[in-house]
Design a protein around this nucleic acid. Structure first.
Length: 323
DNA sequence: AAGACGAAAGTGGTTGA
DNA sequence: TCAACAACTTTCGTCTT
């Protein structure tokens, strides 16, 4: 696929990511970073390493990136919720008696009715705001931990707001609905994150998030494309530090597989892993099954099964000798 | 010693009655 | 709501490099 990467100026990258200083590639040290507008990631032009993506246990160089991100976040986060405490914490009694217990006059009754109505409205307003505020915090937190680009978070926020407005959140935890929204946004934007990855940073379990996600699709009529193996290939390749050529080969293999029709019902990550494994072997950039499996977050066995299948159906011979 | 391989049993999710 | 089912995982023993 013609990935439309552009060589962006340092200034633009700074602006896009609201950071002070463009970093060097932690893998090869090159400063030739490319912004891929499709995936919203910054990629090293030399080795293909995805620089803007955050991995789980990386060394200290990522911390710096984090605090920069934190700085960026601090501009949007807190004030909203602190500025909207429920100022109208009292209720207006529904009985039309005054403080001494006497019946009110008609005029006064009408007045009270109006007051009550406004009171309710004001509170409904603020509860929505408050919910959004909390959700925003949660969103920022998740986004930072998953290393998601800003536009995905923005999209997730929109989705969440829609869910909130159609009453989806009532009775469910904000956290799990936010997670569901993030997942939906990721898939829409082709930034491949598995449900597991997202659920890992959420207190409510994977199951809960999945349920919310399904609801979200139904209730808000979101159309989210199914994730394809091709979506996963670049990410796996970058984790394994494979060359762009290898990733291209892998994608080619995946496309063929799709045509032959052996992709249905299979875990896309597993398929992508298998294709990457084959492509890497053929290019002499040998990676073990274990490495590939870990990068794709599937097991060795799955990689094995898939790649055997691919090799057989597509008649690809695997080089036995390693270079 | 490490990687690749495959069998067997277990797990979570989907589907169809 | 339950059972059947396919895909994936875990575990483990064996073979290959």
């Amino acid at each position: 696929m013609g990935s439309n990467s552009n060589n962006f100026s340092e200034e633009l990258i700074k602006k896009l990511y609201l950071i002070e200083e463009v970093r060097r590639c932690p893998h090869c040290g090159s400063d030739r970073l490319i912004y891929d507008p499709v995936r919203g990631e910054i990629i090293c032009a030399v080795c293909g390493y995805v620089v803007s993506e955050r991995e789980i246990d990386k060394g200290p160089e990522w911390r710096a990136f984090d605090s920069e991100e934190r700085e960026k976040r601090s501009r949007t986060g807190a004030p909203l919720s602190r500025f909207t405490p429920d100022a109208l914490a009292t209720d207006i009694d529904w009985r039309s008696k005054d403080s001494a217990g006497r019946e009110l006059g008609l005029r006064k009754k009408v007045e009270m009715f109006r007051l009550r109505r406004w009171h309710m409205r004001a509170r409904a307003q603020s509860s929505l705001e408050r919910n959004l505020g909390q959700a925003q915090q949660e969103l920022d937190r998740l986004g930072a931990q998953l290393g998601l680009p800003k536009r995905v978070l923005d999209r997730a926020r929109d989705i969440y707001r829609r869910a909130l407005e159609s009453g989806l959140v009532r009775g469910r935890s904000i956290e799990s609905v936010v997670a569901a929204a993030v997942y939906a946004a990721c898939r829409e934007m082709k930034v491949p994150r598995t449900l597991d990855e997202i659920a890992r940073y959420t207190r409510s379990g994977r199951k809960d998030v999945a349920r919310c996600y399904r609801l979200l699709l139904r209730e808000t009529m979101l159309r989210v494309p199914l994730p394809t193996p091709v979506d996963f290939a670049p990410r796996i390749g970058s984790v394994l530090k494979l060359s762009a050529a290898t990733v291209r080969d892998a994608i080619e293999i995946l496309k063929q597989a799709q045509q032959v029709g052996i992709t249905a019902g299979k875990d896309p990550a597993g398929l992508a892993a298998a294709a990457i494994y084959i492509a890497a072997l053929r290019r002499g950039e040998v990676r073990t099954q274990k490495e590939v499996a870990r990068a794709a977050q599937v097991t060795e066995v799955t990689v094995r099964n898939r790649y055997k299948e691919l090799a057989k159906k597509l008649k690809i011979d695997i080089p036995v000798k390693k270079l």
